[in-house]
Design a protein around this nucleic acid. Structure first.
Lengths: 198, 198
DNA sequence: GTCTATAAATCGATAGAC
DNA sequence: GTCTATCGATTTATAGAC
């Protein structure tokens, strides 16, 4: 079951360990926007500090290293994804689970177009996703549902195509001018055609 | 008409201005591999120099600034794309042109999985594509064919989805273990389903 | 074309005052 | 929680010898 009442001693797997302070939240939000525009490697702590309006030292007081900020951003991005995949996993059929997950991922990606790009496109983030256990577990659950229970090349390519299309389409220049509602509807409809006939 | 016989005084729009020297080629190849792994912002001139086995100064002698290397890499990547889109544009029907372009883009992306990722995913490269005229023109031609002559939201999302799916799927972790032939076949087949019925 | 050496700026990160 | 000030490493880039 998902965490609900916050008992103090809850290990809580790999979730954001505690309620983040306002200062921490400001750092993560600024970092998220800058990561999306310049990439993680292209974003310095000075840039983050300037965006918030404080000095580097103040940022370091919240996160002892840049890696910590990257982890926090990853947690923020993956929190939504974890919720969506959990919902999908409760569906009865695998086909229906995949549809629910795709729709949920589209919603997430469209609502916060920033995040989608970072998550699956930044080389630094990809390394974090591969190395940090909790992140990898979420991605494995996503991939499993997207593959629909199979593991053959066709299923792998389908899952890779779905994930890449969602994350990439919402930040594509051609989608930039579209409003959220239009983009969501069109993208959902288009991706449906990608799924196996039921 | 596309350039054919290389007359010495040909302005040649925005193509790689001359035959690159061997040293220049080494720089571009090393940079391409490093950009793909670490991102452009995450790749320093020292890394490029070390990969070739020379010093930074030697690299600077070939390209007066890091931007120059990025442009050269972009030219190398876009050269293939330009060829594919030119071939597609000679097709009679728009539907057929789109199929040819998608197949060609899949071939390019699979053959050189490095390049695909860089081209449409690196924030620095995206800025170059948007700002440099010659690059933007190629991308416009690609987008026009992918949209199939229309410009409505449905066509835009289709084009964005196709481009994102191709570039993203080939570098997705799930596709990493697949051999080129399998990936190409599966990806072509899957993307066909994305196209409008004819 | 490549090297050594170095300048100038910026990077991530730390110490200590308030 | 934020600041000033600073360290050491690394970055882009240049000068000049070979």
């Amino acid at each position: 079951m998902p965490s609900e009442a916050r008992s103090p001693a809850a290990p809580d797997s790999g979730a954001p360990s505690a309620a983040p302070t306002a200062a921490k939240t400001r750092v993560v939000e600024a970092a998220l926007a800058l990561f999306a525009e310049h990439g993680i490697a292209g974003t310095s702590l000075s840039m983050i500090a300037d965006a918030i309006g404080v000095t580097k030292a103040a940022v370091y007081h919240q996160y002892p290293a840049k890696d910590g900020i990257v982890v926090a951003v990853a947690e923020a991005v993956l929190a939504g994804l974890e919720q969506v995949v959990s919902a999908a996993e409760t569906e009865r059929s695998r086909a229906r689970a995949r549809e629910v997950l795709v729709d949920g991922m589209v919603d997430l990606a469209v609502e916060q177009r920033h995040m989608a790009g970072i998550l699956q496109r930044d080389p630094v983030m990809l390394r974090f996703l591969a190395e940090h256990g909790p992140f990898r577990r979420v991605m494995q659950r996503v991939n499993r549902v997207l593959m629909g229970g199979a593991a053959d090349p066709a299923a792998r390519v389908l899952a890779a195509t779905l994930a890449a299309a969602i994350a990439g389409a919402v930040v594509h220049p051609l989608a930039e001018g579209l409003d959220d509602a239009t983009l969501r509807v069109q993208l959902r409809r288009r991706l449906r055609r990608l799924l196996p006939r039921r």
